[in-house]
Amino acid sequence: MAQIFHRSFNTIARVSIYGGLLLLGGLAYVSWVVEQSPLYTDAKLPLVQPIPFSHKHHTVDDGIDCRYCHTSVEKSAFAGLPSTETCMTCHSQLWTNAAMLEPVRASFLTGQSIAWTRVNALPDFVYFNHSIHIHKGIGCTTCHGQLGEMPITWKENTLYMRWCINCHKHPERYIRRREDVFKPIYDPPANQEELGRRLVKAYDVKTPTYLTSCETCHR
C-alpha cells in the first residue's frame, strides 16, 4: 500500500508539535508579564490628582509625620485622608498665592471636599486593616514604597493576594522596630534576618498558618 503521508510530513509534524508547545509557553509567559506589568496592575504609575501633592516635600523636606495627615492609621482599618482644614493649618499662611493650591482654598470656602483619586484599592471581598500592621511593626514604606521620594503618589506594589501571602508567610523578612514604622524613607538593616526573627517573637506575631488561612483576609 502506498504511504498516505509524504516523508516531509515527519518534519511538519515535529515542527507543529514543538512549535505548538513553544507558542503555548510563549503565550503563558507573555500573559504572565502582562499580568505583572504596570499596564495591568497600575503599580508605579503616577496618577492625575486635583492638586499635585508631594509626599517628598511634606515628609522628608518639611519633617511632617504621616499621622499629622493620616490620623486614623494607628487605630482603625482605614488610614484616612486629610481634611481640607488639615491642609489649611499650614496653607492659611504658606503658598497662599500659588495657583496650584487654588482647589484647597476653594474647597475650604465652599465646604466641598477635595476628590482625590484613589491610589491603592483592594476589591471589596478582601478584608484589610492598617492598625494591626502598624502595631506589629510593618512600616508604611514596606507596602507603599519610599513615600519620602515621591513627588506624586503612586502605587508601589501589585496588592495581589500572593504579595500579601508572601509576607504573611515570612514576616521576619519585613518587620521593623515600632519606632521606625512611620519613616518616610527606610532601608532594612544588614542584619534584617536576625532582627526580624527577634521582633516576630517580641511583638508576638501570629503564626504563618493563621495568617495564610483564607478567613483571615476573606471574612
Binding site: 482625590w116 483619586t117 484613589r118 484599592a121 471589596d124
Partner: peptide, 8 residues
C-alpha cells in the same frame, strides 16, 4: 473628604 471610586 470623598474618594472617587477607582477601585478595580
Amino acid at each position: 473628604m470623598t474618594l472617587t471610586r477607582a477601585r478595580r
